[in-house]
């Protein structure tokens, strides 16, 4: 996506597609929120959500996006998503599976701006539903998504522990 300037003055930040050079900062924001190091994960996300779609037009229908909010060269937030289709009969929908904002900048509507940019991108691709999945005890993220208008959907997440064979 083209770089977009948001808000003026000292609080100004831009929104743009993530670059290879953003990965370390994205990973640092993620660790500050989740407390979990994920070696190689963000490099892989950048590879699949930025590099590959840029080189292979056959992936365009997936509308993969990995956006960063930046102040100059400093990444202050990010969001990752894509279009998923026909999982257990679900028509194409936008999926957001990662969002993060630097803790010291959480009152500047950065997450809201990133989320709305993802919504706009999916909407432009003809999508009318956006979904996410998060831990029940992640009250901060759940409150954020609900504040954006998200409610429980018709799908439910199930899991089980795999016993050793």
């Amino acid at each position: 996506m083209p770089e977009i300037l948001l808000r003026g003055g000292e609080a100004a930040y831009t929104l743009r597609t993530a670059t290879q050079g953003d990965i370390a900062q994205v990973a640092a924001i993620d660790v500050s929120i989740t407390g979990i190091e994920k070696p190689g994960y963000w490099e892989d996300i950048h590879d699949r959500y930025v590099r590959q779609p840029a080189e292979d037009t056959g992936l365009a229908h997936l509308n993969r996006l990995f956006l960063c909010a930046c102040q100059g060269e400093t990444v202050i937030g990010f969001i990752v998503g894509e279009i998923r289709a026909w999982e257990f009969g679900s028509p194409p929908c936008g999926w957001v599976f990662a969002i993060g904002v630097r803790r010291d900048l959480r009152t500047r509507h950065v997450a809201q701006t990133l989320f709305q940019a993802a919504c706009d991108s999916f909407r432009a691709a003809g999508i009318s539903i956006i979904r996410t999945m998060l831990a029940r005890d992640n009250t901060l993220a759940m409150s954020f998504f609900r504040s954006q208008g998200m409610m429980a959907g018709p799908f439910i997440q199930l899991e089980m522990e795999l016993q050793p064979s």
Binding site: R136, S143, R146, S147, G149, A152
Partner: peptide, 17 residues
């Protein structure tokens, strides 16, 4: 757990929306 998580994630501001 689901009921608790649902109520805990909805602020009055969100509910008013």
């Amino acid at each position: 757990d689901i009921a608790r998580a649902t109520f805990a994630s909805i602020s009055l501001e969100t509910m008013l929306k």
